[in-house]
């Protein structure tokens, strides 16, 4: 089903990943490939473990079985130093932006540069202003993160995520809680940064419209597995009921509207016999 040329040299590969957390099985045999240099969107209902994939990929969680490969290397098998070296090639945008609240916007973007490099102050300044300009916030450099709107905080976090010129940027729910304008700004930024900097982008989201708008390739997760994949058009044309339910936002379907419960009338005390009488 996947287009072969897209996956000739995948940057990330998940091979039969099983993962459970707090006695709850989240992945039951997850298999997916992330094409290099593209924007890949991973979608799924809330609580289906989309963000968990980013944690596995970043080495912050370990799969119970199976492998997550980054550039052909199993993340879980890396030593601590190798793991840190790998993370330097990744930027990550957290849902809550996760800016360091006691540092200014400038210092937040400068943080990875100061921690990871020995660059002179003058060069750090240039690099930080360059990244801030990319997200349009060069003028807000002296402001503290708390004084910015949620959308701007996310843009600062994005500038910070690309400060070290990573190969890959991970976006965890980048559209959540934003007004339509900010949302549009983020969509545009993800696409522009991906193409201009030659990045690979992985976007985890449950927003169908935005997800479809930026995706070069799209995965739909459900029940701990990939239930649908393809380009945005392919996914939209899918006839699989699970996929159709999610993409069209239908309340009932293969994913049931009702939380599993006992029979309704019995729960209310109306036993079938009495009701029949």
């Amino acid at each position: 089903m996947p287009a072969p040329e897209l996956f000739a040299d995948p940057i990330v590969e998940a091979k039969d990943v099983h993962f459970s957390f707090a006695q709850q099985s989240i992945y039951r045999g997850l298999n997916l490939l992330i094409p290099r240099g593209k924007v890949t969107v991973i979608m799924g209902a809330s609580g289906c473990g989309k963000s968990t994939f980013l944690s596995l990929l970043g080495g912050r969680l370990q799969p119970s079985s199976g492998q997550v490969l980054f550039d052909g290397q199993s993340v879980a098998a890396l030593s601590n130093n190798q793991l840190f070296a790998m993370r330097r090639k990744m930027g990550m945008l957290f849902q809550s932006s996760a800016l360091l609240t006691d540092l200014s916007v400038f210092e937040n973007v400068a943080f990875p540069l100061r921690e990871q490099t020995d660059l002179p102050e003058a060069l750090i300044r240039i690099l930080v202003l360059l990244k801030l300009e990319m997200v349009g916030l060069r003028g807000a450099r002296a402001v503290m993160p708390g004084e910015l709107s949620g959308g701007m905080q996310r843009r600062v976090a994005l500038a910070r995520a690309i400060a070290l010129d990573p190969k890959m940027v991970l976006y965890d729910e980048p559209f959540v809680g934003l007004d339509p304008i900010s949302m549009g700004v983020i969509v545009k930024l993800i696409r522009e940064l991906n193409d201009a900097l030659g990045l690979t982008s992985i976007v985890v989201t449950h927003d169908v419209v935005e997800g479809r708008a930026i995706a070069d390739y799209l995965y739909l997760l459900g029940g701990g597995k990939v239930i649908g994949q393809g380009t945005a058009d392919e996914i939209s044309r899918s006839t699989l009921p699970e996929v159709r339910q999610f993409m069209n936002g239908l309340p009932d379907g293969p994913v049931e509207y009702h939380y599993p419960a006992t029979e309704y009338r019995r729960d209310l005390g109306l036993t079938p016999e009495r009701a029949a009488r």
């Binding site: 970043g58 840190f84 993370r87 990744m90 957290f94 809550s96 360091l100 609240t101 990875p112 921690e115």
Partner: peptide, 22 residues
Amino acid sequence: GLMKATEQLSAMEMMAVDPIVR
């Protein structure tokens, strides 16, 4: 605790900065 709740510690880890040291 607040740094943890607002994912600042996770963000540091992902920036290859060990929060235990920093």
